[in-house]
Nucleic acid binder design. Structure first.
Lengths: 135, 135
DNA sequence: CTCGTGATTGACGCTTACGTAAACGTAAAG
DNA sequence: CTTTACGTTTACGTAAGCGTCAATCACGAG
Protein backbone atom coordinates (compact mmCIF):
# COMPACT_ATOMS: atom_id res chain seq x y z
CA UNK A 1 0.00 0.00 0.00
CA UNK A 2 2.20 2.79 1.21
CA UNK A 3 5.41 0.98 0.59
CA UNK A 4 8.05 3.19 -0.87
CA UNK A 5 11.06 2.18 -2.89
CA UNK A 6 14.01 2.33 -0.59
CA UNK A 7 17.07 3.03 -2.64
CA UNK A 8 15.75 4.89 -5.63
CA UNK A 9 16.09 8.59 -5.08
CA UNK A 10 19.72 8.38 -4.07
CA UNK A 11 20.17 12.11 -3.76
CA UNK A 12 21.57 13.20 -0.43
CA UNK A 13 22.27 16.54 1.20
CA UNK A 14 24.92 17.95 3.49
CA UNK A 15 23.94 19.82 6.58
CA UNK A 16 25.05 23.08 4.99
CA UNK A 17 22.89 22.52 1.94
CA UNK A 18 19.80 21.94 4.02
CA UNK A 19 20.63 24.93 6.19
CA UNK A 20 20.91 27.15 3.12
CA UNK A 21 17.76 25.80 1.52
CA UNK A 22 15.60 26.33 4.58
CA UNK A 23 17.47 29.34 5.90
CA UNK A 24 18.32 27.96 9.30
CA UNK A 25 21.70 27.49 10.99
CA UNK A 26 23.68 24.29 11.32
CA UNK A 27 23.18 24.60 15.04
CA UNK A 28 19.44 24.49 14.58
CA UNK A 29 19.55 21.35 12.47
CA UNK A 30 21.83 19.60 14.92
CA UNK A 31 19.58 20.70 17.75
CA UNK A 32 16.59 19.10 16.06
CA UNK A 33 18.63 15.93 15.83
CA UNK A 34 19.38 16.11 19.55
CA UNK A 35 15.67 16.33 20.14
CA UNK A 36 15.11 13.26 18.02
CA UNK A 37 13.36 15.08 15.20
CA UNK A 38 15.97 14.20 12.61
CA UNK A 39 18.07 11.07 12.25
CA UNK A 40 20.52 11.56 9.42
CA UNK A 41 22.80 8.77 8.28
CA UNK A 42 26.40 8.91 9.44
CA UNK A 43 29.17 8.36 6.99
CA UNK A 44 32.05 8.11 9.38
CA UNK A 45 31.44 11.09 11.61
CA UNK A 46 29.73 13.19 9.00
CA UNK A 47 25.96 13.63 8.68
CA UNK A 48 24.30 12.63 5.44
CA UNK A 49 20.71 13.71 4.92
CA UNK A 50 18.29 11.79 2.74
CA UNK A 51 15.05 12.91 1.15
CA UNK A 52 13.20 11.73 4.25
CA UNK A 53 15.21 14.02 6.51
CA UNK A 54 14.73 16.90 4.15
CA UNK A 55 10.98 16.47 4.15
CA UNK A 56 10.91 16.19 7.92
CA UNK A 57 12.89 19.41 8.28
CA UNK A 58 10.28 21.12 6.14
CA UNK A 59 7.50 19.75 8.34
CA UNK A 60 9.31 20.82 11.48
CA UNK A 61 9.70 24.38 10.29
CA UNK A 62 6.09 24.53 9.21
CA UNK A 63 5.13 23.33 12.65
CA UNK A 64 7.18 26.12 14.13
CA UNK A 65 5.48 28.73 12.00
CA UNK A 66 2.22 27.37 13.35
CA UNK A 67 3.43 27.96 16.89
CA UNK A 68 3.80 24.36 18.00
CA UNK A 69 6.55 23.41 20.43
CA UNK A 70 9.21 21.00 19.27
CA UNK A 71 7.68 18.31 21.46
CA UNK A 72 4.32 18.74 19.79
CA UNK A 73 5.96 18.84 16.41
CA UNK A 74 7.66 15.58 17.20
CA UNK A 75 4.36 13.80 17.75
CA UNK A 76 2.88 15.36 14.63
CA UNK A 77 5.80 14.61 12.35
CA UNK A 78 6.09 11.08 13.67
CA UNK A 79 2.54 10.44 12.60
CA UNK A 80 3.49 10.96 8.99
CA UNK A 81 5.72 7.94 8.73
CA UNK A 82 4.22 5.78 11.41
CA UNK A 83 4.25 2.14 10.40
CA UNK A 84 0.95 0.28 10.30
CA UNK A 85 1.75 -1.37 13.63
CA UNK A 86 -0.85 -2.83 15.91
CA UNK A 87 -4.39 -1.72 16.49
CA UNK A 88 -3.69 0.23 19.67
CA UNK A 89 -1.10 2.29 17.86
CA UNK A 90 -3.51 3.07 15.05
CA UNK A 91 -6.24 4.11 17.42
CA UNK A 92 -3.80 6.33 19.26
CA UNK A 93 -2.78 7.93 15.99
CA UNK A 94 -6.36 8.60 15.01
CA UNK A 95 -6.93 10.20 18.38
CA UNK A 96 -3.88 12.40 17.99
CA UNK A 97 -5.11 13.47 14.59
CA UNK A 98 -8.43 14.53 16.03
CA UNK A 99 -6.69 16.59 18.68
CA UNK A 100 -4.33 18.29 16.27
CA UNK A 101 -7.09 19.01 13.84
CA UNK A 102 -9.10 20.73 16.54
CA UNK A 103 -6.12 22.89 17.43
CA UNK A 104 -5.47 23.81 13.85
CA UNK A 105 -9.06 24.72 13.25
CA UNK A 106 -9.04 26.93 16.32
CA UNK A 107 -5.92 28.63 14.98
CA UNK A 108 -7.60 29.21 11.68
CA UNK A 109 -10.56 30.84 13.35
CA UNK A 110 -8.11 33.03 15.27
CA UNK A 111 -6.44 34.00 12.03
CA UNK A 112 -9.68 34.84 10.30
CA UNK A 113 -10.84 37.00 13.17
CA UNK A 114 -7.54 38.79 13.31
CA UNK A 115 -7.54 39.39 9.57
CA UNK A 116 -11.03 40.81 9.80
CA UNK A 117 -10.04 43.17 12.56
CA UNK A 118 -6.89 44.20 10.78
CA UNK A 119 -9.03 45.13 7.82
CA UNK A 120 -11.11 47.37 10.05
CA UNK A 121 -8.05 49.07 11.49
CA UNK A 122 -6.79 49.52 7.96
CA UNK A 123 -10.00 51.23 6.92
CA UNK A 124 -9.80 53.55 9.89
CA UNK A 125 -6.23 54.43 8.98
CA UNK A 126 -7.04 55.09 5.39
CA UNK A 127 -9.97 57.35 6.11
CA UNK A 128 -7.93 59.14 8.76
CA UNK A 129 -5.23 59.64 6.16
CA UNK A 130 -7.70 61.01 3.67
CA UNK A 131 -9.21 63.51 6.06
CA UNK A 132 -5.71 64.52 7.04
CA UNK A 133 -4.62 65.16 3.48
CA UNK A 134 -7.91 66.41 2.14
CA UNK A 135 -7.96 68.72 5.18
CA UNK B 1 -15.71 58.66 14.37
CA UNK B 2 -14.22 56.05 16.60
CA UNK B 3 -14.79 57.94 19.79
CA UNK B 4 -16.02 55.78 22.58
CA UNK B 5 -17.90 56.83 25.68
CA UNK B 6 -15.45 56.89 28.50
CA UNK B 7 -17.30 56.20 31.67
CA UNK B 8 -20.30 54.23 30.57
CA UNK B 9 -19.60 50.59 30.98
CA UNK B 10 -18.38 51.01 34.54
CA UNK B 11 -17.89 47.32 35.07
CA UNK B 12 -14.41 46.45 36.30
CA UNK B 13 -12.59 43.23 37.01
CA UNK B 14 -10.12 42.01 39.58
CA UNK B 15 -6.98 40.24 38.49
CA UNK B 16 -8.35 36.97 39.81
CA UNK B 17 -11.55 37.31 37.81
CA UNK B 18 -9.68 37.84 34.58
CA UNK B 19 -7.33 34.99 35.39
CA UNK B 20 -10.27 32.67 35.94
CA UNK B 21 -12.12 33.82 32.84
CA UNK B 22 -9.16 33.33 30.52
CA UNK B 23 -7.59 30.47 32.43
CA UNK B 24 -4.21 32.02 33.04
CA UNK B 25 -2.35 32.69 36.29
CA UNK B 26 -2.06 35.99 38.10
CA UNK B 27 1.63 35.84 37.39
CA UNK B 28 0.95 35.78 33.69
CA UNK B 29 -1.30 38.81 33.80
CA UNK B 30 1.19 40.76 35.86
CA UNK B 31 3.93 39.71 33.49
CA UNK B 32 1.99 41.12 30.56
CA UNK B 33 1.73 44.37 32.46
CA UNK B 34 5.50 44.39 32.99
CA UNK B 35 5.88 44.03 29.27
CA UNK B 36 3.60 46.97 28.71
CA UNK B 37 0.76 44.94 27.23
CA UNK B 38 -1.71 45.80 29.96
CA UNK B 39 -2.07 49.01 31.96
CA UNK B 40 -4.74 48.49 34.61
CA UNK B 41 -5.85 51.29 36.85
CA UNK B 42 -4.46 51.38 40.36
CA UNK B 43 -6.75 51.92 43.27
CA UNK B 44 -4.18 52.35 45.97
CA UNK B 45 -1.86 49.47 45.34
CA UNK B 46 -4.47 47.20 43.87
CA UNK B 47 -5.02 46.60 40.16
CA UNK B 48 -8.40 47.38 38.66
CA UNK B 49 -9.11 46.14 35.16
CA UNK B 50 -11.52 47.87 32.79
CA UNK B 51 -13.23 46.56 29.68
CA UNK B 52 -10.31 47.79 27.59
CA UNK B 53 -7.83 45.68 29.54
CA UNK B 54 -10.09 42.70 29.32
CA UNK B 55 -10.34 42.99 25.56
CA UNK B 56 -6.60 43.41 25.24
CA UNK B 57 -5.97 40.31 27.31
CA UNK B 58 -8.18 38.40 24.90
CA UNK B 59 -6.21 39.76 21.96
CA UNK B 60 -2.92 38.89 23.63
CA UNK B 61 -3.95 35.29 24.20
CA UNK B 62 -5.22 34.97 20.68
CA UNK B 63 -1.87 36.26 19.47
CA UNK B 64 -0.19 33.61 21.55
CA UNK B 65 -2.30 30.87 20.02
CA UNK B 66 -1.14 32.18 16.67
CA UNK B 67 2.47 31.74 17.73
CA UNK B 68 3.46 35.40 17.92
CA UNK B 69 5.98 36.54 20.50
CA UNK B 70 4.87 39.02 23.12
CA UNK B 71 6.86 41.73 21.37
CA UNK B 72 5.04 41.07 18.13
CA UNK B 73 1.75 40.90 19.95
CA UNK B 74 2.50 44.27 21.48
CA UNK B 75 2.79 45.92 18.08
CA UNK B 76 -0.33 44.17 16.85
CA UNK B 77 -2.48 44.96 19.85
CA UNK B 78 -1.30 48.54 19.95
CA UNK B 79 -2.58 49.02 16.43
CA UNK B 80 -6.11 48.40 17.59
CA UNK B 81 -6.37 51.50 19.70
CA UNK B 82 -3.83 53.71 17.99
CA UNK B 83 -4.97 57.32 17.94
CA UNK B 84 -5.23 59.04 14.58
CA UNK B 85 -1.94 60.86 15.15
CA UNK B 86 0.18 62.28 12.39
CA UNK B 87 0.60 61.04 8.86
CA UNK B 88 3.89 59.22 9.46
CA UNK B 89 2.29 57.22 12.21
CA UNK B 90 -0.62 56.25 10.01
CA UNK B 91 1.63 55.20 7.18
CA UNK B 92 3.67 53.14 9.60
CA UNK B 93 0.52 51.48 10.86
CA UNK B 94 -0.62 50.63 7.37
CA UNK B 95 2.78 49.13 6.68
CA UNK B 96 2.60 47.03 9.84
CA UNK B 97 -0.81 45.82 8.81
CA UNK B 98 0.50 44.69 5.46
CA UNK B 99 3.32 42.79 7.13
CA UNK B 100 1.09 41.09 9.69
CA UNK B 101 -1.46 40.18 7.08
CA UNK B 102 1.21 38.49 4.99
CA UNK B 103 2.35 36.48 8.02
CA UNK B 104 -1.16 35.47 8.89
CA UNK B 105 -1.91 34.38 5.37
CA UNK B 106 1.24 32.29 5.33
CA UNK B 107 0.11 30.67 8.55
CA UNK B 108 -3.24 29.91 7.06
CA UNK B 109 -1.64 28.23 4.08
CA UNK B 110 0.47 26.21 6.51
CA UNK B 111 -2.63 25.19 8.37
CA UNK B 112 -4.50 24.16 5.26
CA UNK B 113 -1.60 22.06 4.04
CA UNK B 114 -1.25 20.40 7.39
CA UNK B 115 -4.94 19.65 7.59
CA UNK B 116 -4.83 18.12 4.15
CA UNK B 117 -1.93 15.89 5.09
CA UNK B 118 -3.53 14.93 8.37
CA UNK B 119 -6.56 13.81 6.40
CA UNK B 120 -4.35 11.58 4.29
CA UNK B 121 -2.69 10.04 7.32
CA UNK B 122 -6.13 9.51 8.77
CA UNK B 123 -7.28 7.64 5.69
CA UNK B 124 -4.21 5.43 5.80
CA UNK B 125 -4.88 4.66 9.43
CA UNK B 126 -8.50 3.81 8.85
CA UNK B 127 -7.84 1.52 5.95
CA UNK B 128 -5.03 -0.11 7.91
CA UNK B 129 -7.46 -0.63 10.75
CA UNK B 130 -10.00 -2.18 8.45
CA UNK B 131 -7.60 -4.63 6.88
CA UNK B 132 -6.40 -5.49 10.36
CA UNK B 133 -9.88 -6.20 11.70
CA UNK B 134 -11.32 -7.62 8.54
CA UNK B 135 -8.31 -9.92 8.36
C1' DC C 1 53.52 18.92 3.50
C1' DT C 2 50.35 22.54 4.16
C1' DC C 3 46.57 25.21 3.41
C1' DG C 4 41.74 26.06 3.04
C1' DT C 5 37.09 24.39 3.38
C1' DG C 6 33.64 22.17 5.67
C1' DA C 7 32.54 19.20 8.96
C1' DT C 8 32.45 17.50 14.08
C1' DT C 9 31.69 17.68 19.43
C1' DG C 10 31.44 20.01 23.69
C1' DA C 11 30.14 23.64 26.58
C1' DC C 12 28.69 27.93 28.17
C1' DG C 13 25.46 31.96 27.26
C1' DC C 14 21.21 34.25 26.31
C1' DT C 15 16.25 35.47 25.66
C1' DT C 16 11.43 34.48 26.29
C1' DA C 17 7.68 33.46 29.16
C1' DC C 18 6.45 32.46 32.75
C1' DG C 19 6.58 29.22 37.83
C1' DT C 20 7.34 29.48 42.48
C1' DA C 21 8.22 30.83 46.84
C1' DA C 22 8.87 34.50 50.56
C1' DA C 23 7.42 38.32 52.91
C1' DC C 24 4.25 41.74 53.46
C1' DG C 25 -0.41 44.85 53.15
C1' DT C 26 -5.49 45.41 53.68
C1' DA C 27 -10.16 44.80 54.53
C1' DA C 28 -14.19 42.25 55.89
C1' DA C 29 -15.91 38.46 59.04
C1' DG C 30 -16.12 36.02 63.24
C1' DC D 1 -8.02 41.19 67.90
C1' DT D 2 -7.18 37.36 64.96
C1' DT D 3 -8.20 34.80 61.08
C1' DT D 4 -9.20 34.41 56.22
C1' DA D 5 -9.23 35.91 51.60
C1' DC D 6 -7.21 38.42 48.30
C1' DG D 7 -3.92 41.28 46.83
C1' DT D 8 1.05 43.24 46.47
C1' DT D 9 6.44 43.36 45.36
C1' DT D 10 10.96 41.18 45.00
C1' DA D 11 13.56 37.81 43.35
C1' DC D 12 15.41 33.55 42.15
C1' DG D 13 14.41 29.27 39.16
C1' DT D 14 13.45 26.93 34.84
C1' DA D 15 12.45 25.00 30.16
C1' DA D 16 12.76 25.86 25.30
C1' DG D 17 15.36 27.12 21.43
C1' DC D 18 18.85 28.19 19.79
C1' DG D 19 23.76 31.56 19.40
C1' DT D 20 28.47 31.49 19.88
C1' DC D 21 32.84 30.26 20.72
C1' DA D 22 36.80 26.78 20.95
C1' DA D 23 39.16 22.86 19.78
C1' DT D 24 39.52 19.25 16.63
C1' DC D 25 39.28 16.26 12.46
C1' DA D 26 39.16 14.99 7.30
C1' DC D 27 40.21 15.80 2.78
C1' DG D 28 41.24 17.56 -1.77
C1' DA D 29 44.21 21.20 -4.11
C1' DG D 30 48.47 23.28 -4.76
Amino acid sequence: MHNVPVTLDARTWTIAELAAEYDVTLRTIRFYEDRGLLTPERRGTVRVYHARDRVRLGLILRGKRLGFSLDEIATIVDMYDAEPGEEGQLVYLLDQITTRRAELEQRRRDIDETLKELAEVEHRCQSDLKSLRGK
